[in-house]
Amino acid sequence: TTYKLIANGKTLKGETTTEAVDAETAERVFKEYAKKNGVDGEWTYDDATKTFTVTE
């Protein structure tokens, strides 16, 4: 399944996707990606669109 991340960070803005077996796995991947890019904010997830959003 393809999951999408929308990053609304102070230093990183944009979108990326990952293939994962479930939302929990995708969330781990995206949180690691955000951490590597210095983004720390509020996370939301929309199951209907398989989209995570992080906003600083």
Score class of each variant (00 low, 15 high):
Y3G: 01
T44W: 08
E32V: 07
K10V: 13
E15V: 15
E56K: 05
T44E: 10
F30I: 02
A48I: 11
N8G: 05
K4Y: 15
G41E: 02
T25Y: 06
A26I: 02
T17H: 10
Y3I: 01
E24S: 10
I6D: 03
T2R: 11
R28C: 08
E27W: 15
E19T: 14
D46V: 05
T16G: 04
V39E: 03
G14T: 14
Y45W: 03
A23K: 15
Y3P: 01
V39H: 05
W43T: 01
K31Y: 06
N8F: 14
E32Q: 10
E15L: 13
N37L: 14
T11H: 14
F52E: 00
F52V: 00
A34E: 01
N37Y: 14
L12Y: 15
K36E: 11
E24P: 10
G38R: 06
E24K: 12
D40T: 14
K50E: 03
N8K: 13
Y33C: 06
D47Y: 08
W43E: 00
N8C: 14
D40R: 12
K10F: 12
E32D: 10
T44F: 11
T25S: 13
L12H: 14
Y33F: 11
K36Q: 13
G41T: 02
V29A: 08
V29C: 09
T11I: 12
D22T: 05
W43Q: 01
V39F: 14
N8M: 14
T44M: 09
Y33T: 04
T18W: 08
V21W: 12
A7D: 04
L5A: 02
T53D: 02
E19W: 15
E19D: 10
T17V: 09
V21D: 12
Y3T: 01
K50R: 12
W43A: 00
T16Y: 15
E27N: 05
D40Y: 14
T44Q: 09
T44K: 09
V29H: 13
I6N: 05
F52R: 00
G9Q: 05
D46Q: 04
W43P: 00
E32F: 06
V21R: 12
T51N: 02
L5C: 08
F52L: 01
L12M: 12
D22H: 04
K35F: 11
F52C: 00
E32C: 09
Y45P: 00
N37D: 03
A48P: 07
T55Y: 10
R28A: 11
D47I: 09
V21M: 13
T18M: 12
N8I: 15
K35D: 06
G41M: 03
K36R: 13
T55G: 04
N8P: 05
V29F: 15
T2V: 14
T44P: 00
K13L: 11
K10I: 14
V21G: 09
G41I: 02
T25F: 07
V39N: 03
A7F: 15
G38H: 08
E56I: 09
D46L: 04
T25V: 08
A7L: 15
T44D: 08
N37K: 10
D22C: 05
A34V: 10
V29N: 06
D40C: 12
T18A: 07
G14R: 13
T1Q: 12
E27K: 10
F30N: 00
F30Q: 00
T2Q: 10
D47R: 08
K10D: 08
E19L: 14
E56P: 07
K31A: 05
T51C: 05
